[in-house]
Amino acid sequence: MNPSIVLQVAGSVFRESVRDRVLYNLVAFAVLLIAVSFLLGQLTAGQDVKIIKDLGLAAIGTFGLLIAVFIGVGLVWKEVEKRSIYSLLSKPVRRHEFILGKFCGLGLTLVVNVAVMSVAFYLVLGWLAWRETPEVRASWAAPATDPAMLKAVLLITVELLLVTAIALFFSTFSSPFLSVLMTVALWVIGSLSTDLRDLGTVVDAPVAAGLARGLYYILPNFSAFDVKAEVVHGVPVGAGYVALTTVYGAVYLAFVLAAAVAVFARRDFK
């Protein structure tokens, strides 16, 4: 593998997403957050900081998810469909370098996106805290600009990268419509994966329960990356948990990318 080739392919993906105005979602994010923080004060009996945190973290995840899914499924498909891949692969670009470059490019877009959103998020929270009296601030379950929320942001980022890899995998052999469907389905199932594991306790069919348990171990466990509620309530999330979940995400991601490379390596471009 030639890292320079991967980087250049990644750079072109990043440039495309910038020119496609993908980063405009940052404006939407900022507007949403600021508008909601203005509106909420009236409604929520002193819970506006909690709700802004919930909303901000959910929005960071959701905007990223939309980008990962809707751009991810087009990454490879579009190149093949428009035949731009013909001239690219006649250059000294190996197919796995192409796949990795595409992944890194969208990954970079997402990381930049999440980083900018997090800065905006902390700014809004800082402003909310600055507005309040020290007594009110003391009553919050966690400080408004609690650095522990970065743990949730980190795990959201790992989750988004995994979603990107899955979307990319489907993109190597399937149309965008089907890929969106399958990626979203996997994400939903993965977010409910503890239900799969516990199916045995509610269903009296050992085969079905065993199958569900098997799926629990095989399918990506997206619920593991969700520590939003914990950090918002100031419940400690251990560094060990964050590290283990990150490693799990990285290994799963590598597995999905390897599968994408394997599928793509033998594919004919008719």
């Binding site: 929520t44 819970q47 909303l55 959910a58 995840g61 939903v188 977010s191 619920s223 939003k228």
Partner: peptide, 10 residues
């Protein structure tokens, strides 16, 4: 609510 539980709670 998937991973939007605390937002749904809000």
């Amino acid at each position: 609510a998937l991973s939007y539980r605390s937002l749904a709670a809000d």
